[in-house]
Write a protein that binds this DNA or RNA. Structure first.
Lengths: 349, 349
DNA sequence: CTGAAAGCGCTAACAC
DNA sequence: GTGTTAGCGCTTTCAG
């Protein structure tokens, strides 16, 4: 059933039918009712490809994420972000196109998106420090919003991001105010933008409280359980072991828990641990475990906001860069001051 | 730069240029070379919408997942599956469309996909027992492949799935052969197809070895850490506590570990635990923890296979249902026979 | 081997 | 208010 068929059935011209269906003002209410009823009855669905070709709008948004981040904490985060964005697109009648592209082919990917005309806008995921993609996509001249930020980028651009610095500053301050003076930071690789901001927050908290921060307590690596485990093991074996640890993500957090247990220590009593997780839904805080604290914010909401921002840019045509910084919702749970860690250790070989 | 522009530049007709670019045989090698070179030089990219309209092929695949499964173990699994599928699509020049649709709107979603002409085929995720979507989509008459299976469906359909029954049968057999006689199963909700199959495998192993399986040792619930924790806690408090536990997923597995530790027991010594995870990359088995065993298979590979299957169905036009059952790659790690659990327990209040 | 012409299904001037 | 006429950019008969 095409528009033409429907028009023939109704004894009208395709134009009128089109206008009636698309809510143009110049069609009479009577005809509109007839047309809509008939369209409904015949189960008519406009062909988007044809409409796209005629209007120039694809009614689709592309999400691009670099293949290289497949083993980062990106995986679950990405899924949630996309779910949130998808919600908004669905409401607005847009489709969502996902493409996972190797670093080297990013430039081509954007160009293709543009020239193939398959999307009206793009969401860029997992930016690095000074990510070259920002420049690439700006040149291609297609509306886009970055999920996260890319420090040191020389061109202005639109983004939606969590306030990573603030979240870590608050978490760190919390520990400092409890009396902790040696706090370790288990962070992601510093080529990821968020990792740098988190470290800055960690340091800022120290500076604000006049407590020196020891570089030998700051670690950055791939966010695996192994990394959390080994780092913590080594930390606890030191004569100047920290009394608290802040983990940048859930996964190394699991390793941290394990290492603490292996050392014969107890979380929340001997060592305070804060595990930051962008979306706690994966690892609900059991409550009865002495897991010290956790920070929380909704990635899904970030997805929704990014989608709304992009759609607005597209429909308004106003491409002046806009930004949206989401405050993390911190859950700073059952707390305790510093304990003489080293004294309580049994065997960590 | 459109085909017409390019043709004009070359002093050829659009037809010839099209044929040259699309590898039709009747064009001379000389012209083809010229055309290809020019296309390259000008950075010409065919407009997919126009091509789609002309050919009737959308060159895109839709992935539909029900909104209801957002809090299932679906999240990370979905991300990986999609990454694998995306790889194949990219190579074949297809786009990937994702839509997250509420249960109630599934029927309409498929119809829209079909009539809007935005995709050539669909991948259905997270099927339930006798999932009605299978019938819906079959009626709509668009090629599709199901990721997982929906038992009790009356129509035949194509699917790619893990051999969940076999994986759990093997894991259970492993424990039985070590001498365990009371094994608990911490499983997902049984409206999910895989949960049922896993239980069947668990039971089949017992039957094959002539060991009775106790219904009071089988649990099914939402796969949260809390569920794993509470179940294990209660299990260990029983006078007839099991000597081994099999967990259907990583997340409750974390709770299981915690409950065992809280009970003053040690995994792999006092209680043998097998945590099944479709993709261990999220929780690398540390190796030095007495985590007993784990099963492993690549969700990403399943995504690749499903994508290939669907593309083949589409291009060949042969819609006779095909199936692909992937064997899980089991890692049945450091093992131990049963220990008198109850005797070793300290305090679990 | 190449080109002219028609059309995919829809929208958007421009008339009436 | 409604219809007519051109396209959107590409593929595909059908001629030559």
């Amino acid at each position: 059933m095409t528009l033409k068929d429907l028009a023939k059935e109704l004894g009208l011209s395709p134009t009128t039918v089109s206008r009636a269906l698309n809510g143009f003002p110049e069609v009479s209410e009577a005809t509109r009712k007839r047309v809509v009823a008939a369209a409904d009855a015949y189960g008519y669905r406009p062909n988007m490809r044809a409409r796209s070709l005629a209007t120039g709008r694809a009614m689709a948004i592309g999400h691009v994420l670099p293949l290289s981040s497949e083993h980062e904490m990106m995986n679950p985060v990405f899924a949630d972000f996309v779910a949130g964005a998808g919600e908004i697109y669905a409401k607005a009648g847009y489709d969502m196109l996902i493409s996972i592209v190797a670093e080297a082919e990013q430039a081509r990917a954007y160009e293709e998106f543009k020239h193939k005309g398959s999307v009206d806008g793009i969401i860029v995921h997992a930016p690095r420090m000074g990510d070259p993609r920002i420049n690439l996509i700006t040149e291609v001249d297609i509306p886009f919003v970055v999920h996260g930020r890319a420090s040191q980028s020389d061109v202005p651009y639109s983004w939606v991001d969590m306030n990573n610095q603030r979240a870590f500053q608050r978490a760190t301050t919390h520990l400092l105010d409890l009396g902790h003076r040696r706090i370790a930071l288990v962070n992601g690789l510093e080529n990821m933008d968020f990792a740098i901001r988190r470290r800055r927050g960690f340091e800022a908290a120290h500076e604000a409280r006049g407590v020196p921060h020891d570089d030998s307590l700051k670690f950055s690596g791939e966010m695996t359980e192994q990394f959390g485990h080994d780092t913590t093991r080594a930390l606890l074996a030191r004569p100047d072991a920290p009394t608290a640890i802040i983990s940048s993500s859930m996964i190394p957090g699991i390793g941290i828990r394990r290492a603490i247990r292996e050392a014969g220590l107890e979380m929340g009593r001997d060592v305070s641990v804060i595990i930051h997780d962008d979306d706690l839904s994966y690892l609900p805080n059991g409550g009865d475990e002495p897991l010290f604290t956790a920070t929380r914010s909704s990635v899904r909401d970030a997805g929704r906001r990014a989608a709304r921002m992009l759609l607005d840019i597209i429909t308004s045509g106003d491409t002046t860069p806009r930004t949206d910084l989401l405050e993390a919702e911190l859950i700073l749970g059952p707390s305790t001051g510093p304990a003489p860690v080293a004294a309580r250790m049994t065997d960590i070989s």
